[in-house]
């Protein structure tokens, strides 16, 4: 598993969507709120569904049955694996960067 290959400049929205769905299924509006809380920026609908489309194509997330005319999405096992790999890569990179800056490495 190599994280989120092929997302280019959309890797951050995709990553944030996976993080958001890791705590449970959400529909688009709830994802926007959650991502705004986690990442500090609320993604626009185009960016959000652009990333959702790619994640669905890759089998990292899946659409669930509609609830009150809203379609929630859930993370798949492949998505969990990809998210774990990407976060481990980021932690390793951050740890290296911080240690080179002379700070305490991330635990």
């Amino acid at each position: 598993m190599t994280g989120l290959p092929g997302f280019g400049r959309f890797s951050e929205p995709a990553l944030l969507i996976l993080i958001s769905l890791a705590s449970g299924p959400k529909h688009g509006y709830a994802m926007q709120d959650d991502i705004a809380a986690v990442g500090g920026t609320r993604p626009g609908p185009g960016t959000l569904y652009g990333a959702i489309g790619r994640l669905e194509e890759l089998g990292f997330i899946e659409a669930l049955p509609e609830v009150e005319r809203r379609k929630p999405y859930g993370i798949t096992q492949a998505g969990r694996d990809a998210l774990a790999a990407e976060l481990a890569r980021m932690r390793s990179m951050a740890s290296t960067g911080l240690s080179r800056l002379g700070r305490v490495a991330l635990s």
Binding site: H27, Y29, P43, G44, P45, G46, T47, Y49, K71
Partner: peptide
């Protein structure tokens, strides 16, 4: 339908409309 739904209740409609248009 989902994109239109989010756009219709957007808190920053201009930015989101541009975002949707660019992505489209």
């Amino acid at each position: 339908e989902e994109i239109a739904g989010l756009l219709a209740v957007s808190r920053r409609p201009v930015r989101d409309a541009v975002d949707v248009l660019a992505r489209a």
